[in-house]
Amino acid sequence: MAVQALDAERLPIDWQKLALPAVLIAVAYGLIPTYASSYLVEAILLPFLALSLAAVGLNLLTGYCGQLSLGSSAFMAVGAFAAYNFNLRVEALPLVATMILAGISAAGIGILFGLPSLRLRGFYLAVSTLAAQFFVQWALTKFGWFSNDNPSGVISAPHLTVAGFSLDGPTGRYLLSVTMVIVLTGLVWRLVNSAIGRNFIAVRDNETAARVIGVPVLRTKLLAFAISSFIIGVAGVLWAFTYLRTVEPAGFNLDRSFQILFIIIIGGLASIRGAFLGAAFIVVFPLVLSRLGAFAFGGLFDSGVLDMSQRIVLGALIIIFLIAEPNGLSALFDRLKRRIGSRSS
């Protein structure tokens, strides 16, 4: 009886919760493809989508399962190069299958480099995931096979077609990207709200207690590495095929791994929404900074100064976030919403 009453009370709240995603989906499929300029799509939305997905993947591993990783960009590279090779070497492989296979390849590498997590924790684990970062970049440069013997290791995106429709234009690539992001994020959302997601959190919050109550700690950690790497791998495909169109192994360097880590720190650990807020911030922030800089200092604010000031401001922001708001933009967002809510009522 009491339980039923509670459920009845909860229902309207659920509708409220569904309203925001519904609006977002309407914007994503209605407004943006119709009205967005190709500059907005190419320079902002496509990198935003790929980085958001990568951050969702890393958040699963680091935010939810507590395993610190500095190898995200390596898993993106594995995804991108695997997709390129599957597409090149398997006749008539559908694009979606290519992406899934690329994700599975990244998951395999993720499990391999996740093995140290069975013995190492925190900072030491982060250092061991650096091995993935350096090894993958080295292997992709060293062995020409991965880039079909391109002298500088560069791969180019193939023609993107799904069910006969060409998706090579900006809108087509945007639709492909946004669909993959929505589907995978939906699956991650289901996962983190399931018993498996709670196992992730249990391992993060108290590994000893988790082990004693029967959480399969080793399996849970490797699962987190596998799923996280799968998602980051697909994000790598989006990065290479829909955003940059031409990538080299050096494009997936340690800086990119840090960038994704900063996204989830700024956006909010263990929050899916945080991954999107953080990615939006990271993508839009340099553009805003360069406009502001040009406005304030004119010609003095060249690309060198921009790069430098970007690093300084970003570094300062991360320190501020870690001290003042460890739960990131996502928590800030919640607080803002509550304040607006309390004012209107």
Binding site: R190, A195, I201, A202, D205, G214
Partner: peptide, 28 residues
């Protein structure tokens, strides 16, 4: 040794995790 990021109910429910046999795919 509780799981600070989970609700009271989820903390308690985690005590029965050893009775689970389902995979992440079934949960998703």
């Amino acid at each position: 040794a509780l799981f600070g990021g989970l609700s009271v109910r989820d903390n308690i429910a985690s005590g029965r995790v050893h009775t689970r046999h389902t995979s992440f795919v079934e949960h998703i």
